[in-house]
Simulated assay, not measured.
Amino acid sequence: MRVLVVTSQFPIRDEPTRGRPIVQTVQPLARLATVRVVSPIAVYPRWAQPGSYVAHAPGAPDGLDGDVEYPCYPTLPGVARPLNGWLCARAIGDALARFRPDVVLSYWLYPDAYGAMLAARRAGVPLVAGARGSDIRVRDAISRRLTGYVVRAAGRLLVVSQDLGRLAVQRYGADPARVRVISNGCDAATFHLADRAAARRALGVAEDARLVLYVGRLVPEKGLRELFAAVGQLAARRPGLQLALVGAGPMRDELDALAAGRGNVRMAGPLAPEAVAQWMAAADVVTLPSYSEGHPNVLVEALACGRPVVASDVGGIPEVVDAASGVLIRPRDVADLAHGLELALARRWDEAALCTRFSRDWTCVAEETLAQCAEVLAEARRKAGAGKARLTEPA
């Protein structure tokens, strides 16, 4: 089977860890099928770049395996939003025509999967769409409407949590028979229980420190301002408390400035999975105080490393975290986050039990994804065959 993957959530030179769960799905998928990736990049004029936008140099980072193209399309913030799906379709059209896929698999509903839907429809190819979380929890009315077209038109809608599946049906009118939950996997060869003291020596973390770790994009929606405030409250009662942040994003300068005024914050930057796992081994607690989430892989990886988590009670997080593995807190609530961190730091956790909670690997994710692509392709061929039969029936 020939599968064209369309997604803007893929590593680029300036963000080599971007879209890591999608990469981890695509890599084993490429061993099961013939796969090409097209990662369309929206380009804004210098004078009209949104505040959250980070200008990117198109192209694959060093060490990224596979066949990837990075077509660009011009756009403007706000006013061009209704056109972005159409512009995306134009950007990926040449690659689709050259590759001639059997199925288009697109992650990120708008504009990526919308553009993939238009291009696939013109080519007579079925579409499988994948929702990650915030792409289905859109706020503006235009994006919600256009997202709804994709959700209802896709041969399959792949979601990473039951919560996202319910949202697709209730808010967007998705056909429940076409919705499939394929939760994220975990690379057990990288993320596993490891010696905390050894990891701390390697990273220069004091043996007696109480280390809180955040891993993810540096954006406001991850609750990072609340995290800094909560750690500030706790530090007065816990002098050995430290916070480390792993990741990149548009908040980096703001967080660097906040960290500069404290002696207990480390900004580690974006790191390869092996280095992330070392930070998790060094940590006492991993936290994710997001405003919304799908099925956050960082929490699965933290638990695989035997580390408890403190995370917001939103989206698919309660499908990953329960009282035996962490503390759920209210989003946007500094006091509740501080309380949750204090509870987690004070409790003795069964690390051996935590690291056995998730044994699902990425090959399993790829196999389930390919099975849905095969089902959609078979359905499309049956419909095409039925249509030809009707045309050839005698009058």
Rank of each mutant, 00 (worst) to 15 (best):
D350S: 10
Q242M: 15
R266F: 03
V79F: 04
A33N: 03
V181M: 06
L391T: 11
R360F: 04
S52D: 15
P16V: 08
Q27P: 00
S325W: 02
R36Q: 14
N184G: 14
G78P: 03
A206L: 07
R330I: 00
E379K: 08
A366N: 12
R144F: 03
V68T: 14
L32G: 00
R382D: 12
A386C: 11
D187M: 00
S143A: 15
R196Q: 14
L299W: 00
L345G: 08
H56M: 14
A42L: 06
E393C: 06
D135G: 04
H339W: 11
A141Y: 00
V215R: 00
E319Q: 11
L258T: 08
V212D: 14
A80Q: 02
S161C: 07
V320R: 09
E368F: 05
P250S: 13
L258K: 11
L245H: 01
P394M: 03
A119H: 10
V231F: 03
A60I: 08
V38I: 11
A324E: 15
D195S: 15
V23D: 06
A371H: 11
A141K: 02
I22Q: 04
R122P: 00
Q24I: 00
Q278L: 15
G315T: 13
V215K: 05
R13K: 14
T75W: 04
F358S: 14
S39Y: 04
D175C: 03
V327F: 01
D361E: 08
